[in-house]
Design a protein around this nucleic acid. Sequence first.
DNA 1: CTACGTACATACTGGTCGGTATGTAATCGC
DNA 2: GCGATTACATACCGACCAGTATGTACGTAG
Lengths: 202, 202
Amino acid sequence: MSPTPTRRQPDATRQRLLDAAFAEIHRYGYHASSLDQILRATDVTKGALYHHFRNKQALGLAVIDEVVRPWIETRWRPMLESDRPLQAAIDHVSAHADTVDDDMLALGCPFANLVQELAGSEPAFQQPLFDIFFEWKRGLMESVRKSQAIGEGRTDVDPEDIAVFVISAIEGMWAIAKASRCHEQFRASHRGLVLFLESMRA
Amino acid sequence: MSPTPTRRQPDATRQRLLDAAFAEIHRYGYHASSLDQILRATDVTKGALYHHFRNKQALGLAVIDEVVRPWIETRWRPMLESDRPLQAAIDHVSAHADTVDDDMLALGCPFANLVQELAGSEPAFQQPLFDIFFEWKRGLMESVRKSQAIGEGRTDVDPEDIAVFVISAIEGMWAIAKASRCHEQFRASHRGLVLFLESMRA
DNA sequence: CTACGTACATACTGGTCGGTATGTAATCGC
DNA sequence: GCGATTACATACCGACCAGTATGTACGTAG
């Protein structure tokens, strides 16, 4: 029989801290995020936080590993598993802009934010962020190769160039959305990416 | 006769503060930049700084207006003034990756950094950052229209979509360089953009 | 029932931050 | 030459930050 609810729920507490930290970092960035603010938002005390995470950096790394990484993976995984990856990508990108709400548009891509803030200056964050990029790139490369193998995609292009460029474009689209704070610019850049993807057809 | 060198050079002092603030913000971001550090780097005192700038935000806005904006404009202006803008763009992008040194690669695009950090959360910075984006977009749009008018570029595409997408791709390329800290990825994404630009030929 | 490790809670610290109050010397208008 | 304004210089402040020291109650193994 499951135990009656008690006042100590370590896994739930840890998850609440992770979620709140993710939201805080997504909104304000890592450096500008305040542990005290995260504690206020979660009604968790400092003792509990430092019981679950050695320091702010460990919390940040856990957010990257357990929240940001899965978030990115859910974006490219479906394409890799499709029968016609290029068409799936075109469909996904065509519909994507309208699945993002205003709040998300203003906050930007969590991964891109972290890369911009930390990849250049915080050694401890470089490897995990690079890993996310590398997995993403590998997923897209395999998708391109697959679409080439089944005769869907042009074979006169380097899958690596395409994968890296598509990631660039996606991250850039988020940046443009932030700069313009306007859905129409976000949509326009998506249309540009669709144009590019269509030029990849065999 | 010009006056003998004196101990008060307000314009030079202001410029030194601007340059040091730009370097500091480029490396660490706006929030993480310390006024005290900027003062140490310039041998200027706090009194002088607060004589020239009302507060940290005013310094940041001046950096955007007087350093970042011209830096961005020098990037797209040559294309607009070329006889064959599309070819100029292709040539420029083809050569661009190798003009960026390792330090710059790690620091990223100053404009993209500021957009990521501030456009979503600092109201005072939104307008100036948006203006830079908008001028850039306008320059590229005019370039696209020109290349269409002279029969160099495809006419079945919307110049606005192309301009916004190209800016996205460029900003994304910087982000990818930061994430990978590797010139080869930077070059790969440039090759992707060249592919796209070539597909724009009439 | 007990003892011990886990999961918290509270109070505090040193350091750094942006910003200010106040003083002073250089330069300019007249 | 002389006041006024500009261009600095120094010392200081309160707020906030990450991190710590210390204490305590829960939950479970034995």
